[in-house]
């Protein structure tokens, strides 16, 4: 039971990280009609920049600095590439993001090399014990910070004019234009929000015991099954999908370590994703009319 609770807690913490990344995917998909395959690399950039700034600045400033850099990168890609390609069709745009992903990955290797680095999390390796269950501080920080970010996001979408304008744009682009909502700005805004979420996710994805390495972008892409499971156009779906993926990965790693060379848990999210695609292609919370988007 103790093992289950411990794994469950870790699963939820990892799941929240996936939820933040998955939310970024969904917000970009809804806000600008693109699926951004470079988003995983945005997460990697976020972690590397925090790590690079940490020795020179207080942690929170390193975090803010990384947000500035990563948002700037996202806006650059959005403005120079994607907005110009929008009328060329979805396939062109998606392939372009794949190209950007590979370029950013190469850039990271050029600047920081192929080796692994230290952790980039806000808290170290401490633990607390609650009723016999050992909880790492990094996991607690992950859950607390994610819940705060999710709440802020909810307030933004429900209570601010920009949040409303973004939802209106996602709902019906031409009608949004007719109300005087600047669609181009909304595209940029959705990318900027996704980039902020990527940086928050990145520091927890690189929290103890995990470290910063070039493969962090690949780990971040495990949010894709979360997006598909939850539904491409559902914010709630992204959170639920993230939690499901986090839980089955960690529980799978704990209980199925003897099978498949200890790698089985990495496959599980994708197996579930394929199952969902067959049974319920629009995901648990997605709308049926997803092909319209």
């Amino acid at each position: 039971m103790t093992l289950f609770l411990q794994l469950g807690f870790q699963g939820i913490a990892l799941g929240m990280v996936y939820a933040l990344i998955a939310l970024g995917f969904v917000i970009m998909t809804k806000g600008s009609n693109t699926f951004n395959f470079a988003h995983g690399e945005f997460v990697a950039v976020g972690a590397y920049v925090v790590l690079a700034l940490m020795p020179h600045l207080p942690y929170w400033l390193a975090f803010l600095g990384s947000i500035v850099v990563t948002v700037a990168l996202a806006l650059l890609v959005e403005a120079t590439l994607l907005r110009r390609l929008l009328d060329k069709g979805l396939t062109t745009v998606v392939l372009a993001t794949l190209g950007v992903s590979i370029m950013v990955h190469a850039l990271i290797l050029m600047v920081w090399g192929v080796g692994t680095k230290g952790s980039a999390g806000p808290v170290g390796s401490g633990t607390v014990e609650v009723g016999g269950v050992v909880l790492p501080l990094s996991g607690i920080a992950t859950i607390v910070a994610s819940v705060i970010v999710l709440a802020a996001l909810l307030v933004f979408f429900r209570r601010t004019p920009y949040g409303l304008a973004l939802r209106a744009t996602a709902s019906h682009q031409e009608a949004a234009l007719a109300q005087g909502i600047d669609i181009g700005r909304m595209f940029a805004l959705s990318w900027a929000i996704a980039a902020v979420l990527a940086v928050v996710a990145s520091i927890f994805l690189a929290s103890f015991p995990r470290v910063v390495s070039p493969s962090i972008a690949l780990v971040a892409l495990a949010a894709i099954p979360a997006v598909v499971i939850g539904g491409m156009d559902s914010l709630i779906g992204a959170v639920v999908g993230g939690l499901i993926v986090g839980l089955i990965q960690v529980l799978g790693a704990g209980y199925l370590a003897d099978y498949g060379g200890g790698k089985l848990h990495e496959v599980l999210p994708y197996v579930l994703m394929l199952l969902v695609l067959v049974v319920r292609p629009y995901g648990l919370f997605g709308s049926r009319g997803i092909e319209r988007v």
Binding site: L164, R167, A168, S171, H172, E174, A175, A176, A178
Partner: peptide, 10 residues
């Protein structure tokens, strides 16, 4: 707009 075009989800 023609055809009303409200924001259906809002």
């Amino acid at each position: 707009l023609e055809g009303r075009q409200v924001f259906p989800e809002l």
